[in-house]
Design a protein around this nucleic acid. Structure first.
Lengths: 213, 213
DNA sequence: CTGCGCCTCCGCCAAAAGGGGGAGACGCAA
DNA sequence: TTGCGTCTCCCCCTTTTGGCGGAGGCGCAG
């Protein structure tokens, strides 16, 4: 019996995944969690054979849970799932040692194959991953992994990004943060260059994708 | 037996909903569809007692399917579900004659109650709807319904909005559409005023919310 | 035929955004 | 102590955005 822990915040998706997994008699979903912190605790408690986890979660993200697991010496295979193609999260997940990275619109076969491969210690990223991400993967293997990983935003930058997403202008953000507009512009420029976009519209979208917002 | 047609594009959510509905022995999910067009065809074919449908769907949106149903004289109760609070879609759904409008993070009890109420011809919008939307609902009842409904975007404006969301500048959008930058600026301004935002960042977010993107 | 909505563009103008570089203050870790 | 990163702010500059009014063409419904 394959003992699996499921971490997924959206109840319907969680139900859907349980249902999907129920089709495979070898798999036993021993526990599920709706957020990262709870998930991490459950994983430590249950010591499952494999973890199926959403990338975007309230509190700790899937990638953060994965990092925490690895930091604690837990080598449990982890399969990350995501709603959209999240290239940056994908790269971070790769780096953090995820065993698979799948989109939510996968078939049962893909999921089963990913679980089998993960149990065997393989790392699969084929099903439903963007070609862009695949190409980046090669680049990553060929160069320094850290070089292609997105520069993490500082706490202040994340605040600014979130206020950007709320539709505030730099001046309004400055007022909101009790800082000068020049400061906000500095942060804004830094955010844009870090996440590799050239305007705030894309920054917000990308921030959404990266889980910052 | 309550014959129900389920229209939901995301496979996992569809599975989750089927699973949720399976807990109620009275309900028989006679068919499901993954897009609006297919959903509409199935509804016409199956003539179910109630329709459970996502608002955002590929091709025809849930609201559009609902309008098409009503235009064809189908009075089948329709329960719309949505991932986020989508105020505009909510108002449109109200206007189009939806029987319920629920968020996806509902409980089985809420869903069951909504189905029962819908079958009885009631119109419920209580569970999990924003207070803003509730307030607007009262305003709507008190004034002309059309007055609070957001001005629909023209096809060209939708194209522009989508390119905005792709992070293109007005000039790039112009090139992409083989039009002048001035034209794009006109469309852009029109979009902003129609959806009631003051910059493209919020326009994209709102567009996402309204299902335009 | 006459509106009306949509798409196409103009000009003008103010505001906002974004890039460049520089710089001081702070705290923290090597 | 000496970096290093972060946060703060300044300058100057170009580009972009968005609001304003105006206008012609086109197709479609009343």
């Amino acid at each position: 019996m394959i003992r699996l822990v499921l971490v997924e915040d959206e109840a319907l998706v969680r139900l859907g995944l349980r249902q999907l997994l129920a089709f495979d008699a070898r798999i036993d979903v021993v526990a599920d969690a709706a957020n990262g912190l709870e998930g991490l605790a459950l994983i430590e408690l249950e010591r499952p054979d494999v973890v199926l986890m959403d990338v975007r979660l309230p509190g700790l993200s899937g990638v953060e849970v994965l990092k925490a697991m690895r930091a604690k010496g837990l080598a449990t295979p982890v399969i990350l799932i995501t709603t959209f193609d999240e290239e940056a999260a994908f790269l971070q997940a790769m780096h953090a040692g995820a065993n698979a990275f799948l989109r939510k619109d996968i078939s049962l076969e893909d999921l089963r194959a990913a679980i089998d491969a993960a149990l065997a210690g393989e790392r699969v990223f084929r099903p439903a991953i963007t070609q862009v991400a695949q190409r980046r993967l090669f680049e990553m293997k060929a160069s320094f992994p850290a070089a292609v990983l997105p520069d993490p935003l500082t706490p202040r930058e994340i605040e600014v990004l979130r206020l950007m997403a709320a539709g505030l202008s730099n001046k309004e953000i400055a007022e909101s943060l009790h800082a000068g507009e020049a400061t906000v512009k500095t942060h804004a420029s830094s955010i844009l260059s870090k996440i590799g976009v050239r305007d705030r519209t894309r920054a917000v979208l990308k921030g959404l994708e990266l889980g910052y917002i």
